[in-house]
Design a protein around this nucleic acid. Structure first.
Lengths: 217, 217, 217, 217
DNA sequence: AATGAATGAGGATTCATTCAT
DNA sequence: TATGAATGAATCCTCATTCAT
């Protein structure tokens, strides 16, 4: 699956992709992640970021058009990793079915949420922020489209399965994670497991016999 | 089902239930609803409320201990209505099954969201706010417990169905609504319908044969 | 010694001296004392007083012209007691000298500060308040005049001792108490003892031989 | 005597010591001084300071962590001058005795109070403020310790003179000034003179013969 | 006499963002 | 490119006091 790219941030203000600047951008991103992780998204102010990144507030505006752009950049950075994880884990499957695809995808998400707790915080708990929210919505749509294409190509779902069904599946998966990670940093296992079951049960309504029984990858 | 009551707001500062004061409280509540509805929950400040309600900021504090209390009061007011709607609609059912109970309950919610758009806004889009969020969490738990008891008494679900399953059902229903009402003030019909299917499909995993086929009310 | 009376409060607004009203005034005074004692003079607001006194805020204005008047009333009430204590203790002396008069007077103050901790709080720690401060200044002047007359009549001090000397003695005694009671509710004993010595040493500069050696009362 | 330094303010927020910023800090300090001098310490609000300093309220927070820090900064600035004045005047003495040391020190204070009326206002009349009060207490202790060491080294007081005696001396001197400057901006001369006598009389109780008669500096 | 209700006038502090250098 | 400095615009909340009843 192709990673979902979003150029908006880069457009708003040119973000350098190499050299010393690159390092400073990373420092800002890391600082922001750290703050959100430690004290929640409301604690993220230009000052706190600048303090943690040990650079002047004004420097943030050298690389980012505004505060939201920082959040978005983190999302993009870590979301690329997320997409890669999903692609890799799906690629490793030997037997494909609606269940195995859903399960693998959702567990890949959990893997990354565990590896990137700050991203989890921003992504699952910081959806307050409009920029984050919009990005999320778009990413979910793209992910749904990709997954649907993937499943259709392999005859796991009926050809007439509407895009909206895939989208709902992804969105609900998303909400399940929001719920599971709400109180528990590692996500409540029961909620995660049951959430997977729920999405599987829902999507299997559109599965082909092959999608139900599974086929060699 | 017993309505979920939460006296916290009233406790924080006495809210009069009659007389002219009552009217001013309503004016504040309505102003707040209007603001949230029009510009989102972040637009709700003591000043905007006071302006819209055409009264001094200080007057708000005559009736509410703080800003959160205003939000909470709206939730309580409209949530009581919600509970009544659910109870009434369930009471009108002639045939009970997991599906009919879930469907009726969720549609009752939609009914109230349509009737109370500001509440919808606060409830579904304003979960940012901690006070609202906490109240929501508690209300969801209570609702889940009530519904589970209701289903158990009528043998619709297996006796060992864990409380967490009901909670997940309610929470996911909640999230489905958040999703459906995110862009569309009336809620996206497709998402609502499919969301109902999803919750039904999930909960039927714990249904008794009676719960699947249905029994006379 | 005649008690120092200050009618200002009563003038500002008529304070009833009998009947049910009297009881309500006392309740306000006691509430205020309690608050100041417990949380300092900044905690004294019309609302806190009303709450503790279990009556509406507006009722306070029935008896007192403003917040300051409440403080003043406490001062007057307890200061009368102070004056009585001083007069009584001086009256019990069998041998009069500058030292014995100063010592007796200052110890009488300590006695009352111990008996009326709220008064101590207002008087010694709450001199912030202009009303209290002004009242204090006036009372100190009157006390100084009374004591000087007392000492002169008995030939304890030289006839030409200026009033200002007595005033300074009283004022410094006052400051010694402020200092001694600053941290310690009962007053730091060392500071009290030394303070007495200081005032005695100062005033003995104006003593007659009789005032130094002492004369039968 | 070493000046009493207190870095708290500078720590709370970096105060620039040179350049244009320095000038703005001075403007704030001067504005605050002016306000306190004109209308008392209660008139000192962020807004009044900003108005008088002709800069936005927010700018105050560029240099000071909070309102108290402004007061403290004035105290520190002028108290340093005070310490220098005392040290200089003591250094100029040709004959040392308890009396000459006390007298010189107290007159040095008066000199600075005359030169810095705003400081006098804050220091002597603004002890209301907790920050000022705490700073004052600490400074008094330090001053007492320094003076005691000074006097001991020169055998002016008995070696066993307790620290508390010096502290009481300083504190009472402080209170004498509070009293003398209460109504009179230049301090009531009589009160100042008599106050000096009082402190001298008290401290001479702990003087050595040398401390009474005086020794060459 | 008593009081519920109403409010004008502040008060401290925060924050994202923009410039001049 | 980098940044120290500056600030407009808000934000929530408190309090003493006054009326109409």
């Amino acid at each position: 699956m192709a990673p979902v790219t979003n150029d908006e941030t880069a457009v708003r203000r040119r973000i350098p992709t190499q050299g010393r600047s690159r390092a400073r951008v990373e420092r800002i991103l890391d600082a922001a992640s750290q703050i959100v992780l430690a004290d929640g998204i409301e604690a993220l102010t230009t000052r706190t970021v600048a303090d943690v990144a040990a650079m002047p507030v004004a420097s943030i505006y050298q690389y980012f058009s505004d505060k939201d752009a920082v959040l978005l950049a983190i999302c993009e950075r870590d979301m690329a990793e997320m997409d890669e994880q999903v692609a890799a884990d799906l690629g490793r499957l030997t037997r494909l079915s609606v269940r195995s695809v859903v399960e693998t995808t959702m567990r890949a998400y959990v893997t990354v949420y565990h590896r990137r707790p700050a991203f989890m915080q921003i992504w699952l708990r910081g959806r307050t922020n409009n920029a984050v929210n919009d990005y999320g919505r778009r990413h979910n749509q793209r992910t749904a489209a990709d997954l649907l294409a993937f499943a259709r190509e392999r005859d796991l779902v009926t050809p007439d399965t509407p895009a909206a069904v895939a989208e709902l599946g992804v969105e609900i998966g998303d909400r399940v994670f929001q719920l599971a990670f709400e109180k528990e940093v590692r996500g409540e296992p029961f909620l995660i497991e049951e959430g997977i079951e729920m999405v599987v049960a829902y999507l299997e309504r559109h599965a082909t016999p092959a999608g139900l029984e599974g086929v060699p990858a």
